[in-house]
Simulated assay, not measured.
Amino acid sequence: MKPNTELNTMMFFDDALESERTQLLTELADAVSETRTAADQAAEMNEDGEAGLLRLTEIWCAMNGVPAIVIFEGSQSELLANVVAQIYAHLLQHPFHDPVGLAVCVELRYMTDALMLGEWFE
C-alpha cells in the first residue's frame, strides 16, 4: 500500500492547539477579572503566588514582540493582575502555532486553574 503524502498529518496537532488556546483564553479572561479584584482588595500572595508571578513574568518576557526591558510597579497582587492582563492581550493578538506554544498553553492553563482556586493568596 502506497502512503498518501497529501494528507495533513498535523490536523490533530492543530485541533489540540486550537482547543487548548480557546480554553486558555476563556480562563485567562476570568483570571484577569479575579486578579484585578484581588489587587483592589490588596490581597496578600503566598509563596505559591510569588512563584507563579515570577513564572508568569518569565513567560510574558519570552513571548515574541515583548520588549527586553520591562518595568513593573505596584504591589505583588497589582503586578500579578498586570502580567495576567498582558499575557491575555498578547495571546489574543498573537496566537501560538507550534509545539512550544501548545506546551505554554497547557502550563498557563494549569497556573490559571491554581490561581482561580485561590491557591496563590493567603
Rank of each mutant, 00 (worst) to 15 (best):
M1F: 09
P95M: 04
A103T: 13
L117R: 15
A103E: 13
Q93K: 15
R55V: 02
L25M: 14
M10K: 10
L53S: 01
M63S: 08
M45R: 04
L92E: 15
V104S: 08
T37N: 10
D15L: 06
P99N: 09
P67L: 00
K2Q: 11
E27V: 03
V66W: 04
A103M: 14
A39R: 12
N8A: 09
T35P: 11
Y110S: 14
V104N: 06
T5L: 13
T35C: 15
S19Q: 05
R36I: 12
R109E: 10
E122D: 11
G65T: 08
E44T: 14
C61P: 00
Y88K: 12
L79A: 07
A29P: 02
D30N: 11
S33R: 13
A42P: 00
P3A: 05
D14Q: 11
F96S: 10
V104Y: 06
L102E: 05
D98W: 06
R21S: 08
R36F: 05
A51L: 10
M10R: 08
V66I: 15
V66G: 01
T35K: 08
D48E: 15
F72I: 01
V83M: 04
F121D: 04
E73R: 03
S75L: 04
D14R: 02
E107C: 04
Y88S: 12
H90F: 09
F12N: 02
S75T: 14
G65C: 10
D30E: 14
L115V: 07
T112E: 02
I59L: 09
A29R: 15
F12A: 03
I59M: 06
A51V: 06
E18L: 06
M45P: 07
T35N: 09
V84D: 01
I71T: 05
G118L: 08
L92A: 07
P99G: 03
Q41M: 14
A43P: 03
A51G: 01
M1Y: 11
A29C: 08
